[in-house]
Write a protein that binds this DNA or RNA. Sequence first.
DNA 1: AGTTTGACAGTAT
DNA 2: GATACTGCCAAAC
Length: 116
Amino acid sequence: MTFAERVYEVTALIPEGHVTSYGAIARALGAPRSARMVGWALNNSPHDRDLPAHRVVNRVGILTGAIHFGPPDEMRHRLEVEGVTFIDEITVDMKAHFWDPADDPRVDEFFQFLES
DNA sequence: AGTTTGACAGTAT
DNA sequence: GATACTGCCAAAC
């Protein structure tokens, strides 16, 4: 299983109405210095898998990946529909919606699965 | 096998 | 504070 595939698995676990950051995913994968790789992985993410990639923002809460969602405001709109609030046009309220993969027991289960 | 490329993060200025 | 700079490393080519 490649690094990118692990990124997809974690991304799929992001709860509705929440967001996480590239760095947080990298840490959860045991590669704390590989935030850029998470971005790279999502950039090449499969379109046939319905990944909630719109729930991944940078550490500040800015939707740096918005340009990959077609219409300029598509990403923000998807988040707003889920109840995610913004502190300005492009910045999500991280304090209210941040979800850390490392805090979710399902992520631990996932890693145990990998070892078996 | 060497180079390039990022949807980043942390530190320094 | 806002920029600028630097470290990062998996994949594609």
